[in-house]
Nucleic acid binder design. Sequence first.
DNA 1: GCGCGGCTACTCGGATATAAACTGTCCGAGTAGCACTGG
DNA 2: CCAGTGCTACTCGGACAGTTTATATCCGAGTAGCCGCGC
Lengths: 167, 167
Amino acid sequence: MRISEGVEWAAHCCLLLDWMGMGDPETAEPVSTARLAAGYGLPPAYLNKQLQPLVKAGILTSTAGKKGGFRLARRLRDITLMDVLTAIEGPEEAFQCAEIRQHGVWADEPASVFRAPCAIDTAMRTAELEWRRALAAQTLAAIQQNAELQAPGLRAQVQDWYREPRP
Amino acid sequence: MRISEGVEWAAHCCLLLDWMGMGDPETAEPVSTARLAAGYGLPPAYLNKQLQPLVKAGILTSTAGKKGGFRLARRLRDITLMDVLTAIEGPEEAFQCAEIRQHGVWADEPASVFRAPCAIDTAMRTAELEWRRALAAQTLAAIQQNAELQAPGLRAQVQDWYREPRP
DNA sequence: GCGCGGCTACTCGGATATAAACTGTCCGAGTAGCACTGG
DNA sequence: CCAGTGCTACTCGGACAGTTTATATCCGAGTAGCCGCGC
């Protein structure tokens, strides 16, 4: 049970795209995976693969061609950690009840018994719901703000680094 | 990011062991993996493998030999879903920050910048903590009680089924 | 000078290998009960 | 009849394959800009 590292990559890239686009997705220019990957020392092709589901989820938009790349589809305040995680890990829950209670002792029980949900499944769902609720409560805008509070000037440094034409 | 099915198996087996032991681990007789597996239609050898970490975690005790098997190490009210999950999935967190921010643009920054934790990591940890908190709040005793409420007579049925010498 | 067409460079997107983790199976060390033997 | 002893059957525990998932890479379709040509 380990969350794919793609989630971390995606979240960082969203923050980076916002910094480079000055916070306005409308006027932002696309950034290629090569440049994004250079910013974090990541393998460019694999980062591209990881960002693709974000496009399908409507978090990013992609444009091909010479000046192409990725852009934010909406503002950071409208993107939650839950959105990013769901885009990459998929919408299904982490705990998937296999209903093993139906395959052994209770196989001959009347179907009415199984109308009631598995108590273990219910408990696991309850806990997982808390997790997802906490994820949905965190917007990328809030996270970015925390990052800037802890490292003042970070925004300007990033923009400077990317001003010259990197790989 | 999918939780191993071993968690579901382990939780069910703990409930089963409690039913068969009449709730008192002290006077309960060991139950072999063959019998436990028969109760749920599971592969016996693999179930054995899944229960082993529960022994190491101090949730179950195992005894070898002819009349051997597994027993609960403590009462259900002293076992939480968090205990079971940690035993099988391991103690490490689901989201593991790779600190990619240190490998690219910010590689040349002073080390003081990295004293502050990664804002994304912090947010993910916060959410995951909520999840674990919810898991730790659910004891197996409470789950068992819910199961019995939804299916009255379940306890007696299980005990009857296991009264005759199954595989 | 200006419009247009072809070309090139660069992009994403998916198809393709490689590594890791999960799932499942098998056999051996060890133990507890049991039968047999001897007193 | 009872104690001791060897044997057998059964248990867990870990070592060994098979299968799905995650990681990493590569190449092709397609687009946007740009250069050159013709008007």
